[in-house]
């Protein structure tokens, strides 16, 4: 059994990590940390965990926590984990950081997209970008994982085969629709039921922070600088992300060619499903079909009129877009079976 701690456990991602880790047969959750919920039972903050844990949130020093466990999940706000990582590294513990602090290899991107200079840029190279389908071998030998962002994950999964095959010559337009849980459990004026219900809120027409990590990963795959234009909107659902990406491509392409491209790229990838059915109840990926699961559902459409490929991704933002992906990386890092603790058929209907 591996002993783990979740720091920042009172947020939605922290709660989802605890849900998955408490069910994991090779994991013992020794510690749940929260500054804001210090002293509360975990199940009081995450009522779905009642009966599954008697842990109480604590707010001990990070070095004290590190002395009790083997691996620490950091689910703290962006900018905070770079303060916590150096002292944890000194203890020899493994780290999976759910935030953005160690995702971007180019440190000049941090002031541009996050508004701060990185306090320990020399440590970034020690982290592996935690996309298990793209960086499996690196994750297996890593001690420190930077877990990807949710919209970034859906975008990258749906575009990766096209990037690898050299289709991404021109800037990619990505439209992302996301559920409310992606914005966390903090309350704002817009959280008000009357304000939020039935709204399609275009919260980031441009400038979304996941842009540079999508560009980073697609550029690695394509072997050249790939530019992305990302627009994100919040839609009336709790969980889920749907990304539709337009890839302008001048030559004619057959559907079978893309099918074979996606099949080959994701061969034997347990959590990737090609979800297109010409006569199905759902004909393309839909976040509704992945709820509560670690699946990434992918699809595409060819538009000969505008000479573009529409690449589609659907994930549960809290599972494949966050906690599930992190557990999958942990499994690889610790040489557990990759899918252990993650086999769950999606709930339907929801």
């Amino acid at each position: 059994m591996i002993k783990v701690a979740v720091i920042g456990g009172s947020g939605y991602i922290g709660g989802e990590l605890l849900r998955l880790l408490l069910q994991h047969p090779q994991v013992s959750v020794e510690y749940a940390g929260s500054r804001t919920s210090n002293g509360k039972f975990v199940y009081k903050v995450h009522p779905n965990l009642k009966g599954s844990t008697s842990l109480i949130f604590k707010n001990d020093s990070i070095t004290d926590v590190a002395s009790k466990v083997d691996l620490i999940f950091l689910a703290v706000p962006h900018g905070k984990s770079q303060e916590l990582v150096p002292p944890i590294m000194d203890t020899g513990n493994r780290i999976i950081d759910m935030g953005a602090d160690f995702r971007l290899k180019n440190i000049s991107e941090y002031p541009r997209w996050y508004g701060w200079d990185h306090c320990c840029p020399d440590l970034i190279q020690k982290f592996v970008y935690g996309n298990p389908e793209l960086h499996r071998d690196e994750i297996r030998s890593a001690k420190f994982i930077a877990n990807p962002g949710c919209i970034a994950s859906s975008s990258i999964y749906s575009l990766a085969p096209l990037a690898k095959a050299g289709f991404l010559d021109l800037p990619i337009n990505i439209d992302a629709k996301t559920g409310s849980s992606a914005s966390g459990n903090d309350v704002s004026d817009f959280s008000n039921y009357s304000a939020k219900t039935n709204s399609v809120r275009l919260y980031k027409p441009s400038g979304h922070r996941h842009t540079p990590e999508i560009e980073q990963e697609l550029s690695i795959l394509s072997g050249r600088r790939t530019k992305v234009a990302l627009t994100a909107q919040s839609v009336p659902m709790v969980r889920g992300i749907l990304t539709t990406s337009s890839v302008v491509h001048e030559m004619d392409i057959e559907e079978k060619t893309l099918w074979n491209l996606f099949r080959d790229f994701y061969k034997e990838k347990r959590f990737i499903r090609l979800m297109m059915d010409k006569n199905g109840l759902y004909r393309y990926p839909d976040p509704k079909l992945v709820t509560g699961s670690n699946f990434a559902d992918l699809g595409f459409n060819i538009d000969p009129y505008s000479q573009r490929i529409i690449s589609i991704g659907a994930i549960d933002n809290l599972v494949k877009g966050a906690a599930g992906n992190a557990v999958q990386s942990m499994n690889l890092m610790l040489d557990f079976p990759e899918e252990i603790g993650l086999i769950s058929i999606p709930i339907f209907p929801v």
């Binding site: 559907e255 090609l274 059915d277 010409k278």
Partner: peptide, 26 residues
Amino acid sequence: ICGGKVTIPADVMESEIVSCDDCGLE
């Protein structure tokens, strides 16, 4: 269309509808 597999029952009859396991084309 997609290069996937269309499963044909052993006792299939004329006019019957079958579909592709991958893309769902009938």
